[in-house]
Design a protein around this nucleic acid. Structure first.
Length: 226
DNA sequence: GCCCAGGTGGGTA
DNA sequence: TACCCACATGGG
């Protein structure tokens, strides 16, 4: 649909004009991106950053070391990121899989075709659709669009919901069917959406000076968070 | 003190 | 399929 596509391109251009390049993902290596993708589930990044610094300080931010580390000790290190017991199990399952799947060689892993690799990732405990796509895009450089709570909220607020349903794949299809399969574009677009999502509604910039004109209803009018 | 954050998996109707 | 809930810390 031409209307939808131009609207999504318009949104991207407005966000980029306002915020500029976001330089995502905030991680130094593909492996660190994968760990961060799990740790940031329903969690503020500042807390994830603490947990990752703990892992680095303990010299266990690699797959082999994390396999050796007892799960309870891992849980203690990642405590600041919340859900630490659940996430410790998820990280253990991830590194176990990485060892079996590709002997920890992520170049080998990401040489796999995107669609079957996505299915493999979804079979790992603790990796759902958003985490799988974040890994594919930000660790693997694959042209996969990441959908998160901010994306859904902002699209709904703009009246751009998918026509046929409200599941993850429905929102993802909206972007991937209408934008070129460009990992650089998808990288920046998702990062910009998160940047907007983090802006507080009141006071400015969101409601009073929103780059997407979400605040036109005036003070108290539901913005991208409402 | 209360609400929320870059979700996911398991259980139930 | 569609909800509902547990999982938990730290900042506003």
């Amino acid at each position: 649909m031409v209307l939808v596509r131009s609207a999504l391109v318009d949104v991207y251009e407005k966000l980029f004009a306002r915020y500029g390049p976001q330089h995502w993902w905030p991680g130094e290596t593909p492996f660190e991106v994968m760990i961060g993708a799990i740790l940031t589930q329903n969690t503020a990044w500042t807390n994830v950053d603490r947990a990752i610094r703990n892992l680095k300080a303990a010299s266990v931010l690699n797959a082999a070391a994390l396999r050796e580390l007892p799960q309870v000790e891992l849980a203690t290190l990642i405590r600041p990121s919340g859900y630490f017991n659940a996430k410790a199990r998820k990280l253990k399952e991830l590194v176990r899989w990485l060892g079996e799947r590709c002997a920890d060689d992520l170049d080998v892993l990401f040489a796999t075709e995107t669609s079957p690799l996505r299915k493999e990732l979804l079979n790992v405990h603790g990796i759902g659709e958003e985490t799988a796509d974040s890994i594919l895009l930000y660790a693997g450089g694959k042209p996969v669009f990441v959908i998160d709570a901010y994306t859904r909220r902002i699209l709904e607020r703009l009246g751009l919901q998918p026509p046929h349903g409200n599941r993850y794949a429905d929102f993802q299809g909206l972007f991937m069917e209408d934008l070129p399969p460009d990992a650089r574009l998808f990288n920046e677009y998702h990062a910009l959406i998160v940047r907007l999502g983090k802006e507080s509604c009141r006071p400015a910039p969101c409601c009073a000076d929103c780059p997407l004109d979400l605040g036109r209803g005036g003070e108290g009018y539901p913005c991208h968070r409402g």
